[in-house]
Design a protein around this nucleic acid. Structure first.
Lengths: 197, 197
DNA sequence: AATAATCTTGACTGAATGGTCAAGTCTGTT
DNA sequence: AACAGACTTGACCATTCAGTCAAGATTATT
């Protein structure tokens, strides 16, 4: 049974861990940093999560559902183009609203996903396979142009997450302008043209 | 004056450093690992590069030109669509041939580019501004559809580098298939449709 | 109020890691 | 061969960092 204090502190710790892991990667993050951001002592955060590794894992596991929600929300019964455009928009919105989550996963995958448990990767693969099949069926029915559904999904990930993951580079190039200024309009055009039958 | 031995060892070290930094990030890489991969002792690699930081920096600086070559190769006098399609193809080829370089820069940018010297970032920004202006001029002359040239460049980066940077994720989803199978054909369609006047 | 359970932390420990150094080996030049 | 300069390394040091622990403080239960 979890107490009031446990709920509060686990929350504080996971939020601090997200902050620090996403900005520095697993190896670059230190428990001292996380403790400082959480406003707790280091032994105390280790009281709630047995090790740095477990903390990281709890974070990934807890965020997976949020992270995959936009893809889950694709409705096989809906209008193909509207569904995919909606997915793209939701994913871009995620990059805007949850850049830390995006960078957390990016750090992990970039280094070969050495800490992604099989349960997490299995969930991911199954969902993608399922959604790819839906898109393929739309293609086969002539309701979408013939395109590889996996590459379509990858391209949506790539372009939307780019704004969160490579924010530093975009800022460097675009100066004071908001990195996402014009992004939605641009992506709208890209996918609208791609999906036109 | 640089000796034969210096040339050989600096080369060995930078290649090992690329291997280790790109796979683990700056903080995750250790000098012991780099020394082992280079086949030299740790004090010896520090004889050639004063510190881990300098080694990393020498690597980024040395690779910048290679990395930006495809963008440089865009010819303002050429055919707009062919030039941009060619750029996309060269960039995808880079992801295939030089995934380590892609991941090295990705790691750095993902963590906020804390070690990108101003000379490097200046070079990058100037080149992108220049090429964006070329693309804008093509648009203004009606030789390309009206699209934001910066977002166009970002989208090419995003989609091509995705195959190198997130290789682990793609492999997870696609199983045994080569992650880049079908990528070129897909990107060809995306940009061909986007750039049609 | 008394007791048990939960929570908190200062002070540690051992391992990893970036970097140093003095002493030695190798290479090129005369 | 002899010498200078370049190269190499075992042993070491200081710091950082994940994780431990015993003792104390707080909270919940009776």
């Amino acid at each position: 049974m979890t107490t009031r204090i446990q709920r509060r502190n686990r929350g504080l710790i996971l939020d601090a861990a997200l902050e620090v892991f996403s900005a520095n990667g697993f190896r670059g993050a230190t428990l001292d940093q996380i403790a400082a951001v959480a406003g707790l002592s280091k032994p105390n955060i280790l009281y709630y999560f047995d090790s740095k590794e477990r903390m990281h894992n709890a974070l990934l596991e807890g965020l997976l559902d949020v992270w995959l929600a936009p893809l889950r929300a694709i409705d096989p019964e809906g209008d193909p183009r509207a569904q995919i455009m909606g997915y793209m928009r939701r994913k871009l919105q995620m990059s805007r609203d949850y850049p830390r989550e995006s960078r957390l996963f990016a750090n992990e995958v970039l280094q070969g996903a050495p800490r992604l448990e099989t349960s997490i990767s299995g969930t991911l693969r199954d969902l993608v396979d399922d959604r790819a099949a839906v898109i393929q069926a739309w293609s086969d029915a002539g309701r979408l142009p013939a395109i590889d559904p996996y590459h379509l999904i990858f391209s949506i990930w790539a372009m939307t997450q780019h704004y969160a993951d490579f924010d530093a580079q975009i800022r460097l190039i675009r100066g004071k302008r908001d990195p996402m200024d014009g992004a939605e309009a641009f992506l709208e055009i890209v996918f609208e043209r791609l999906l036109r039958v």
